[in-house]
Amino acid sequence: MHTERFGTGHLLVCVHGWGMNGRVEQADFEPLFRERDGWERLYIDLPGMGQSAAGSTICTLDDMLSALLDLLEHLT
């Protein structure tokens, strides 16, 4: 899955809603952090959205959740 990180400190994971991508979340949230230090932001494009490939193993919402949890375990 495609991810982008900004800042350092407490980790905030931003997962977009259906039919969007991480850039939408960045546009909404990054202005809030211009004057707030101490936060690391991780924006994720879910499989098949934004810059993430769909992948043949994502068939259900449970598969999507499992892939997301695997990614977070790997990145944190």
Rank of each mutant, 00 (worst) to 15 (best):
G9Y: 13
Q26W: 03
G55V: 01
L75W: 05
R23H: 09
G55W: 04
D45C: 06
D62I: 05
I58D: 04
L72W: 07
L68Y: 06
L61T: 07
G7L: 10
R5I: 09
L75Y: 02
P47M: 01
L71I: 03
G38M: 15
E73M: 07
E73P: 01
R41S: 05
D70V: 01
H10G: 10
Y43N: 05
A67C: 08
C59E: 14
G17E: 08
T76I: 07
L71M: 09
G50W: 02
H74E: 09
L61Y: 10
N21I: 01
D45E: 10
A54V: 10
T8G: 04
G38K: 14
P31V: 13
E73N: 11
L71T: 01
T76R: 13
R34K: 14
G50H: 01
R23C: 10
C14K: 00
L68T: 15
S66N: 12
H2R: 13
G19M: 14
D63G: 03
L61P: 08
S56V: 06
D70I: 03
F29C: 09
G55I: 00
H2C: 01
V13T: 12
D28N: 06
D63P: 00
L71K: 12
C59K: 15
R36A: 11
R41A: 05
F33R: 02
L68S: 05
E4P: 03
L61C: 05
L71E: 02
P31F: 05
N21F: 03
S66M: 07
F29A: 08
G50I: 02
R5V: 15
L42K: 11
M64P: 10
Q51F: 01
E4D: 11
M20E: 10
N21W: 02
G19T: 13
R23V: 15
D28M: 14
A67T: 11
V24I: 12
W18C: 11
G7S: 06
V13F: 08
L61E: 12
V13L: 09
M49T: 05
Y43V: 06
F29R: 06
I58C: 08
Q26M: 15
L65Y: 03
A54Y: 01
R34F: 04
M64I: 07
G22S: 11
L69Q: 11
P31M: 09
D28W: 12
T8H: 14
L12A: 14
Q51M: 08
Q51A: 14
G17K: 06
V24M: 07
C59F: 01
R34C: 03
I58E: 04
E35L: 02
H10T: 15
H16V: 00
P47C: 00
T76G: 11
T60P: 00
E35C: 04
G50N: 02
S66E: 15
Q51N: 13
S52F: 01
D37L: 13
A54Q: 06
G19E: 01
F33A: 14
A54M: 11
H2L: 03
L46V: 08
A53L: 04
L46I: 07
C14M: 07
R34E: 12
E4Y: 07
I58F: 03
E30K: 04
R23P: 00
D28H: 11
Q26S: 07
L11S: 14
F6P: 00
E40H: 05
T60L: 09
L68R: 12
Y43E: 10
L32I: 14
E35Y: 09
L75Q: 13
H74G: 03
L68P: 00
L69N: 09
L69D: 10
I44M: 08
R36C: 11
I44Q: 13
L68I: 05
H16P: 00
L72V: 12
